[in-house]
């Protein structure tokens, strides 16, 4: 019985499973509010707080920035407890799925996958960064993360006006685009009330336009720059869901790299690391599904193997023509 279940899981049509899982998560986090679902305000993905009506919870980055912009005596005093409590809640959510929040749950990530599907259907070829550009751009998310901490802290210290409040949210395409799914166009504006708001909302609208084009021609375009992804990576050590690699079983065929939306070369090249998840990884598990070597790549939850590469699963998925990029390219 166990072996049959194991076989069924390992042979799963991951693309189809992921599509429906993402669709359900999208409905939950974008429309769940209408069903009175409220999962709090420490969620580790972009369940946008600006989607006032439909959200089923709030992305942690919004309250975090608000909390950090409190006056320093408060922040480093009694209000610090609130910040720690918020972070602890965020951390507890996060360790369950690790970066699987990005690959399976995040509405903005799902939206990018849908745009990719649209591009495929239209027969337009995708873009890649190239190794040099990849190595340069991969730092952007850490810079954005640092700014996301420093700007609110500067506000709390009186160095910057409150008009610069929640700076990342102001430039996040999720703020502009996700509320549109509940027919809320309130974020499609430029705020002229101060220089700070003018700059941030202008940037936000421009980046929203850039996001649509970028996600259309480059898979998971925005995830490469996402500060939430950077924050995830920094605290991912104790997470329960893990992507493991057995370098001894790897033949460096390159399938995993070819299907990787994030162009992570290490997934194919690195034979040493067991814990192969990198800062750019979204734990979409496409690499596991595309791997023909039994046990070379596997997913563990609390050290329990829940999904692994098998020859049978690989052949089944390939023969089915499930639309893996390795076949389509």
């Amino acid at each position: 019985m166990t072996s049959r279940l194991r076989r069924a899981v390992d042979n799963v049509d991951l693309q189809r499973f992921r599509f429906w899982f993402q669709a359900a998560a999208f409905v939950l986090f974008v429309y769940g509010g209408y069903l009175a679902v409220d999962l709090g305000n420490s969620l580790p993905m972009f369940s946008c707080g600006y989607n006032q009506e439909g959200r089923a919870g709030v992305c942690y980055l919004l309250p975090l920035q608000h909390q950090l912009s409190r006056p320093w005596p408060q922040l480093f005093g009694w209000a610090g407890i609130g910040v720690l409590t918020g972070f602890a809640t965020f951390f507890l959510w996060f360790i369950v799925l690790n970066k699987g929040w990005c690959g399976f749950m995040c509405p903005l990530g799902t939206l990018q996958d849908w745009l990719t599907s649209l591009r495929k259907r239209l027969g337009i070829r995708y873009s890649l960064y190239g190794e040099q550009a990849f190595n340069r751009l991969t730092w952007v998310k850490f810079v954005l993360l640092a700014l996301m901490f420093l700007i609110p802290l500067a506000i709390g210290g009186g160095l910057l006006s409150h008009d610069w409040g929640a700076p990342f949210c102001q430039i996040c395409p999720g703020r502009v685009i996700l509320p549109l799914f509940t027919a809320d166009p309130l974020q499609l504006t430029i705020d002229y009330s101060s220089i700070g708001t003018l700059v941030l909302t202008g940037l936000g609208m421009f980046i929203a336009g850039l996001f649509l084009v970028g996600a259309f021609i480059k898979k998971r375009f925005f995830c490469f720059f996402c500060p939430m992804s950077a924050l995830h990576y920094l605290i991912s050590k104790p997470a329960l869901l893990k992507l493991k690699k057995d370098g001894d079983k790897c033949t460096k065929c390159g399938n995993c790299f070819n299907v990787c939306d994030m162009e992570i070369r290490a997934i194919a090249d690195d034979l040493e690391r067991k814990d192969i998840m990198t800062d750019d990884c979204t734990l979409c598990l496409k690499c596991v599904a595309a791997c023909p070597e039994p046990g070379a790549l596997k997913v563990e939850f609390a050290r329990i193997n829940i999904f692994q590469a098998t020859e049978e699963g690989f052949l089944k998925r390939m023969n089915k023509g499930a639309g893996h990029d390795a076949c389509k390219r």
């Binding site: 499609l188 430029i190 609208m205 421009f206 980046i207 336009g209 850039l210 084009v213």
Partner: peptide, 8 residues
């Protein structure tokens, strides 16, 4: 806002 988004 729409103009800037469109420009982007």
């Amino acid at each position: 806002g729409l103009l800037v988004g469109l420009a982007g």
